[in-house]
Computed example of a mutant assay.
Amino acid sequence: MKFGQWLGLIATAAAALLLWNLREVLLLLFAAIVLAMALCTLVGVVQQRLGCRRPLALVASLLGLLTLLVVAIAAVVPPFVSQFQELLQQVPAALSLATRMLRQGMDQSSQMLYGKEALHWLQQSWQSQSSNGLDPATGLLRLLGLAGNLGSGLVELLFVIAVSVMIAIQPIAYREVFVLLVPSFYRRRFRQVLLLCGDALSSWMGGVLISSLFVGVLAGIGLSVLGVKLVAANALLAGLLNIIPNVGPTLSTVFPLSVALLDSPYKALAVLALYVVVQHLESYLITPSVMHHQVKLLPGLTLMAQFLFTVLFGPLGLLLALPLAVCLQVVIREVLIHDVLDPWKRLRTSEP
């Protein structure tokens, strides 16, 4: 290769390395773009309903979201905090009860299979671990690490919100800046691809909102029937964590299950059965019927995207796995297939 080609190759490798080192910042920017798309969709609806200009619709949308956030915090957070404090005080009793029930079940299973306590060595290891206390210095270091992670997470959240609001104020201007980063001959087509990505994200967010509302309502009704405390907070958690498929529903089960376990083990089993039924309804009835009219994502590809983006980007990659998969699906279909592979196929078939 010539010197210019070597120089271009080195510059490309350096740019790829720089982008990889900045992957967390780029992922935060993508999160801001997703949030800005949701805000732009809401602004469009408000502008269409009220017949006002975009700045006024944006202000009305932000005030409405802020009002909903304040009402939700005032209605959910105080009882949630009090219940969580009570749960923290009673967690040792709940853990000992769960451990004792698990040991009894293991003993009965071992006696039925082997006629003796074949798992006695495991019980001894549990007892030795429970007898060993936590080093105060280690606990302090863990507490400081948790505080640092919470602080950095809060700063990142504020950054995402600020950037998303800035993009929502002038979405077309920011889109044109992004279009200028590609070669001039492809800018018109790239603008169309960006518009398709925006439409796909808006459709996906609409489907997720409908599905999360169904999950929250069903969880709230079921928890009210079972008599579990803090129904509103648990239903809100179920709806919010439903955004993260496969992992979110499992996390949303932990708190109501712990609260129910403090009352009765049978109530905890009933809560577990309730959440299993709700998630099956969401997975096999609600989401397919909603997403069929919104975004067509195969379940296998969704699971692969979650695993891949979690390995590459960590917890934030897991949270943004589905919007990333939605955008990648549009890019692969429009750029790779329509713009690269299809013309090459037509060129090969036209050859004599």
Rank of each mutant, 00 (worst) to 15 (best):
G220E: 06
S202V: 14
K229G: 11
I221G: 08
V225C: 07
V231P: 12
I243A: 11
S211Q: 01
V217G: 06
A200C: 04
A235V: 08
A200F: 02
G206V: 03
V208L: 04
L226I: 13
G198S: 07
V231N: 05
W204Y: 07
V228T: 07
V217E: 12
V215W: 03
M205C: 14
V217C: 11
S203P: 10
A200L: 04
V225Y: 14
V217A: 06
M205E: 04
N234Y: 06
L213C: 13
M205I: 05
L201K: 08
G216D: 01
I221C: 12
A238E: 14
G239F: 08
A238H: 12
L236N: 09
L230Y: 10
V231E: 03
G198Y: 11
L241Y: 11
S202A: 07
A219F: 13
I221D: 06
L213M: 11
V217T: 05
G222I: 13
L230Q: 07
L236A: 14
V231K: 07
L230T: 06
S203H: 12
L230D: 08
G227F: 04
V225N: 15
A219G: 10
L236G: 04
V217L: 13
K229H: 10
A200G: 05
W204I: 00
V208P: 00
N234A: 11
L209M: 15
L201C: 10
L223Q: 02
V231F: 03
L209T: 02
A233H: 03
A238W: 07
G216M: 04
N234Q: 09
M205W: 03
L241Q: 08
N242I: 04
S203T: 03
N234W: 04
G227R: 09
V208N: 03
N242H: 08
V215N: 03
L240N: 13
V228Y: 03
L236Q: 07
G220Y: 13
G216S: 09
V215G: 02
G222L: 15
L241R: 11
S202H: 08
L240D: 14
G207P: 00
I210V: 09
L237Q: 11
V231S: 04
A200W: 02
G198H: 15
L209I: 04
I210L: 02
G220R: 09
N242A: 10
